[in-house]
């Protein structure tokens, strides 16, 4: 596909995204799209490090959770405005990324060992968040006060008591903004020198190093960028739900969501995490509706399907849904 065609496609997609709240009046459907976008952001964060860099993290919750905790605690403990807390929260994602990256990459951890150490860090942060009660409130979690003053909507960055349209779409636009910024960043990264170096490290780290690529630096940049985007997703989460606890922040659920979406959508592609998130959520929602109608609501069903789809995609679609679309496009005669 030519670049112009791709850009046109993205602009149409972005326009649809911006128009969605005007076209969709049902709060439930908009919420569904909003959560899909949230997972697509988490997935894109993972995709930078895992998809482009080949470093599979099993503990991406550590970045999401730290961003969420910093955003919540700066407001809760020090009365920061959410706008002032935001840069600190995003920087904390980069900071944790730098710490984990420095230790793992300096000591040459690759493949499964890198996956294990990220998992261990997420678990260590979960234990710390539970234990250092004087800072984090421990297992009870941090609750932010709900703003009920419609005049303070923008200063508190809370849309629950805003005027009807913002109440309908405020949080949706918040995550859409994060998503558009993150996807533009990855789009530009893919076409930059840094992106090419990152891909070369994924393909063959030793060969890349032999050609003069500083693999350590490249991986450090990738993990920091990845951490920042995951932390931004954490900021959105806290502003929307006004609550975070150790399980939500550092439990395995977010780490799994972050990696499943890009793998199913297509590793190392800009559109992959969005495709994966949309596909998974649609399937999960349909299954929940169908089974729910048969035997009443039961937890777990959507995740059973995620697991199955993950295994099937790994087995039969190594390039994910994006690869499938790409070959379909070629077969139709496009891209000549």
């Amino acid at each position: 596909m030519s670049d112009t065609l791709r850009i046109t496609g993205w602009v149409v997609l972005a326009a649809l995204g911006i128009a969605a709240p005007f076209l969709i009046s049902s709060g439930r459907w908009l919420e569904f799209i909003e959560l899909t976008l949230f997972v697509a952001v988490l997935g894109q964060a993972w995709n930078i490090l895992g998809g482009y860099g080949g470093q599979y993290s099993f503990g991406h919750a550590v970045f999401f959770g730290t961003g969420a905790y910093v955003q919540a605690l700066l407001q809760f403990r020090f009365g920061f405005s959410p706008w002032l807390a935001l840069p600190f929260a995003i920087a904390s994602g980069a900071g944790v990324g730098a710490m984990i990256g420095y230790l793992s990459f300096r000591y040459g951890l690759r493949g499964s060992y890198f996956a294990l150490i990220t998992l261990a860090f997420a678990e260590a942060f979960r234990v710390l968040a539970r234990s250092i009660v004087s800072v984090t409130e421990g297992g009870r979690g941090v609750s932010l006060p709900l703003n009920q003053d419609s005049g303070e909507v923008w200063t508190t960055l809370q849309f629950t008591f805003a005027e009807p349209f913002l109440r309908h779409a405020g949080y949706y636009y918040m995550i859409l903004t994060v998503l558009i910024l993150a996807y533009i960043a990855v789009w530009r990264m893919e076409r930059s020198r840094f992106g090419a170096q990152l891909i070369s490290v994924r393909e063959n780290e030793d060969a890349a190093a032999a050609l003069g690529v500083d693999a350590f630096r490249v991986k450090m940049k990738a993990i920091c960028l990845s951490g920042m985007i995951a932390a931004a997703a954490g900021v959105y989460y806290v502003q929307k739900y006004l609550f975070v606890d150790p399980e939500i922040a550092y439990g395995p659920a977010k780490s799994v969501e972050a990696l499943v979406a890009p793998i199913i959508g297509g590793l190392g592609t800009v559109i992959g995490p969005l495709l994966g998130a949309a596909f998974l959520h649609s399937i999960g929602e349909v299954a929940k509706e169908a089974i729910g109608a048969l035997i009443g609501p039961r937890p777990g069903l959507d995740l059973i399907l995620y697991g199955m789809i993950l295994v099937l995609v790994l087995g039969y679609l190594p390039r994910g849904l994006a690869g499938l679309l790409d070959s379909a496009w070629r077969r139709l005669g496009g891209g000549r």
Binding site: Y56, G300, L301, M308, L310, V311, G315
Partner: peptide, 24 residues
């Protein structure tokens, strides 16, 4: 396909299926 990272992810997929199957 005998690739380490893929195997790790396949076993993760199986873990997700078994755990949520039990929950269900």
């Amino acid at each position: 396909h005998g690739r380490d990272e893929i195997t790790l992810l396949v076993t993760l997929g199986i873990a997700i299926m078994i755990e949520n199957g039990a929950l269900f």
